[in-house]
Design a protein around this nucleic acid. Structure first.
Lengths: 157, 157
DNA sequence: GACATCTGGTTGACATGTCATCAATCTGCC
DNA sequence: GGCAGATTGATGACATGTCAACCAGATGTC
């Protein structure tokens, strides 16, 4: 192994800041979402992804891919949400193995009630604290990193 | 509730990019760290925080605060790490209730073996993909958000 | 000094996420 | 058609994180 190139001071500071922000932002957004809407962040993500599809229903594998979740995790989480009446499972006509998740009326009500407050929280704790330039930089940089990580496997060693 | 100010296109894109990056970066760094060093990210964080203190030991509450973990979580995690021989618990001379975590020789070996590879991964998947300006922007913006979130409670509504 | 209260840490019950495995079904190939 | 192998989703065992209750020792008040 070559001699490691450690992070310089600025890089170190950015990396630590990123991780600290990540943690604090997560905690706060989750806290407010639970307090104001009774939903966890994973709940909200599932519901809002479903609410955005034309049919308000998706194949499990499709949803899992969008959310970057394992199928197992999604399956477990959906059974919990199903028990709370937020979603239902349906058979898939096109593929006998497949299943489809659909938003229930109650699930729809839940996201619609939660969304304004959640967006406001994202603004309050992140977006509105940044300059337009910073938002542009964040946009560019995150997408570059995402592209790198989803590129050909050998790019990841 | 006032009419919500939704995110505009750029803001939306930055927010989604951030969350996607967060997830993918996490998965990849955790995957490599486990594969190359047999440590989880929480393991690594505990060990490297300890390794950086002059005495290689810390009060539990101090460590919990630095890591933004609950005491309960830290306590559970330390008993697991203790069973693997990475850390030990000691009594605290100054406060009869208190406890101190100390790095074992093995724990020290583990971080020192893990660190170069982990730093390299952070470079490869994040730092080295950014321009100096972007690093500076990330540094500034994350710290501003952190300061906001750790400021007076009423700033958070 | 004695009592009430606070604080540091542990614990157990429970929620959530991961991993390996399984059954059903689909696909490609003969 | 029929079989081998791949894919889809469910499931159970286990690892990890959260929450509330608890104990022991510190601190404050009279």
């Amino acid at each position: 192994m070559e001699r490691p190139r450690w992070l310089d001071e600025r890089e170190q500071s950015a990396w630590r800041g990123y991780r600290r922000m990540r943690r604090l932002l997560d905690l706060e957004l989750a806290r407010e979402l639970m307090r104001d809407a009774g939903l966890s962040e994973p709940d909200y993500d599932v519901l809002s992804d479903l609410a955005e599809t034309p049919d308000r229903r998706l194949r499990l594998s499709e949803l899992a891919d969008r959310m970057l979740w394992s199928r197992s995790r999604l399956s477990h989480h959906l059974t919990r949400m199903q028990q709370r009446g937020l979603v239902t499972r349906e058979e898939c006509a096109a593929d006998g193995r497949g299943a489809v998740v659909a938003l229930t009326a109650e699930g729809r009500r839940a996201v619609e009630a939660a969304a304004p407050g959640h967006v406001a929280a994202v603004r309050r704790h992140l977006i509105d604290l940044l300059t337009p330039d910073e938002i542009a930089a964040l946009d560019a940089l995150t997408h570059r990193v995402v592209d790198h990580l989803t590129g050909p496997d050998d790019a990841r060693r």
